[in-house]
Design a protein around this nucleic acid. Structure first.
Lengths: 396, 396
DNA sequence: CTGAAAGCGCTTACAG
DNA sequence: CTGAAAGCGCTTACAG
């Protein structure tokens, strides 16, 4: 029995059909594994063969690689004769430059990473939409990473994005307040990639930030409920740093109005297989909060959009009436809010502004390595309380 | 007045502070433009300086670059002594490999491109969510591109993604039926990047496809409305290829029931500054369709989720009652559908299944260069009519 | 197990 | 205006 030594150069000669002949001749001797490896190599080689490089273009145009590069890349100058020869050749070969090689030399990738909890959350998806739109105009592409509020995953994404040498990073961090001061985390963020933090600050990390005024938004919503005569108000929201700020706003409003709040009114439990702040958390938490007619709050305030959806589902399920049995203020406005019976009062934050400001600052950071006005390194956008009909009025 | 020739080597000596001295000495002579250029160069050099390469790791570990690569990349073998020396060195230098250079050699980028109409459309965002999740487990990142149903933008994205040498492509194409046979388009799609078409077929392009059964979904919904006694049924949806299929399903159902449909019942107008199939199109089209009590249909069927939202908004605005004044079947289920008064009947398609099947096939395509079963190259998933209360019953 | 060297496909400083 | 050559940071076939 013969042995076969299939070396690299043999593969290279695939053009001349050598591998095919080789395969035919020895069909029964080769085991299927090595056959598969050879086929794979063939496929790869085929793929590569199709790919014309700038060298092919230069050859066909009868100029040097340098000149071809100058014409195609628009850098340096070339005679009009060279220009047309190269352009013709490129068109004929259907040449598409290799951006990887370009990135290698130019030290940029024209790619930005966006790290968020969950792209199917309308709040994040509308941010992503706008970020992508502004970025696309400047020639950047967007890589999207879903953390599901898991900081492990966030760190793993960060590492991958660094490896890919993205030109910039926009992060709605899953890091909890306690985690953010760890050394390793800091190291990741402090690496030299221009970074903008959105949606929530990362305590202890000094980077440009664009957030809503979470504290004030929650404070105003709670104050509104109090004005409408509610004294026992429940909030829903677990382990996300934004929500901590909102809970603080709630507490402040309660205290200022001399209202006490028992612990059970602040629902911040996490549930198995439910990521923090998700619809199901809203459903489960609302059920628990409202199940006992004796102790239940007269109003609830789910602290983000998905929790709001969950709360509405649970309330409907339980057959409770809004606002007679329980009033509600939601977080984030949504198209159908005015159509529900009754229409839902919400705290509205502008994903449009967050995305726009953050993206423009990121672009500024990328081109200048610094922000023009250090003064407003932290941008806080005010929220708006949109009063509709879901809070009732127990005051009159 | 002196002239300055600041050459490359001078920049390289920035470490020794030469540029800083140079800048100080000539502060008033340099115009701000050249100062900025010098600062930029400095910044770039600084950035690069920080970046440790595998060469630095090898030097520190006292081994060759090849050995360092073998240890860090996990290919080939190395002595345990080398392994620990290299690992220590890498950790000490906070070494993060350059994925660009790796891609250059390995001919892959571990990146997939997803081309969709609009990531802020819940249908697409839930697809994106799932695609990203499956992909992330296999070590791929996802670049997201919003076309807004504009085929020009789609082609431009395609080109960029080819330049970036993504390993695979998933496309819900904005191409209209008429455009898809153009030569240039075909050329783009026929390039050697593994590609899966989702959501809608591209006529004339023979690539693996995963779609819902749009025809049948619309046929069933229309049939349901007819069974409920509706004879004058309007549909809403403009220039998107999926919607053409749905219109066909509607027509078929109407014809089978010997119902005539005037042209005005098929609302397919486009509006300025409104991308096809968007909420505003739903609002505008519904207003027109329902404005005249004499001619208005007794039921409407908006052909996608955003159009459905728009229709609901318009109906509410006009003060019409569902289903007494107008019945409605929506496309795509949504969390709040059961909570509206009345609950909305919808055609439900499974973004979960589309995303899952499409992603797994793409991964298969990437690793095998072909699909195992050519037979089911085109996968069509059935839809489900979820009957709630928005269709009334004129039949009794 | 290991190192020297080639090469991936570009860009660019240098020298005509 | 143009070409030869170096180099970006890796991987890998080859030869010890």
């Amino acid at each position: 029995m013969k042995t076969f030594s299939i070396n690299y150069h043999l593969f290279k000669r695939e053009k001349e059909g050598i591998i095919n002949i080789f395969l035919k001749e020895n069909e029964n001797v080769l085991n299927s594994f090595s056959k598969r490896r050879i086929m794979f190599k063939k496929n790869m080689d085929n793929r590569n063969e199709k790919e014309n490089t700038i060298r092919d273009v230069a050859n066909l145009a009868g100029v040097s690689v340098a000149t071809a590069g100058r014409v195609l890349g628009g850098y340096g100058s070339a005679s009009s004769k060279s220009v047309s020869a190269v352009k013709d050749a490129a068109a004929k070969l259907n040449y598409i430059p290799n951006g990887i090689a370009q990135s290698m030399k130019k030290k940029n990738t024209k790619t930005i990473g966006l790290i968020i909890a969950n792209i199917s959350n309308p709040y994040f998806s509308s941010i992503a939409r706008l970020v992508e739109e502004v970025l696309a105009k400047e020639g950047y592409n967007l890589i999207i990473c879903n953390t599901d509020e898991d900081s492990e995953r966030e760190l793993s994404y960060l590492r991958t994005l660094y490896e890919k040498r993205v030109d910039g990073l926009m992060i709605a961090s899953a890091l909890k307040d306690s985690e953010s001061s760890e050394d390793e985390v800091l190291k990741m963020y402090k690496n030299s990639i221009p970074t903008i933090i959105i949606d929530r600050e990362i305590p202890g990390i000094d980077l440009p930030t664009v957030t809503s005024d979470n504290f004030r938004g929650a404070y105003e919503a709670t104050t509104h409920l109090i004005k409408m005569g509610h004294k026992k108000i429940g909030v829903i929201g677990s382990n996300i740093s934004t929500l901590f700020r909102r809970v603080d706003g709630y507490k402040q409003a309660m205290e200022e109005n001399f209202l006490t709040f028992d612990d059970y009114l602040i629902s911040n439990k996490t549930y198995d297989n439910v990521s923090p702040g998700d619809v199901n958390e809203g459903i489960f938490a609302t059920r628990e909060l409202l199940k006992d007619p004796e102790t239940r709050p007269t109003a609830i305030f789910p602290l983000n959009n998905l929790l709001t959806t969950g709360a509405l589902i649970a309330i409907d399920e339980m057959g409770l009436r809004i606002p007679e049995d329980v009033a509600i203020v939601g977080w984030d406005d949504f198209d159908l809010a005015p159509l529900l019976k009754p229409p839902i009062t919400v705290v509205k934050q502008s994903s449009y502004n967050i995305a726009n400001i953050a993206t423009n600052r990121l672009l500024e950071l990328i081109s200048n390595s610094s922000l023009s006005s250090e003064a407003d390194k932290k941008v806080t956008l005010s929220t708006e309380l949109v009063v509709r009909g879901s809070c009732g009025n127990k005051a009159n």
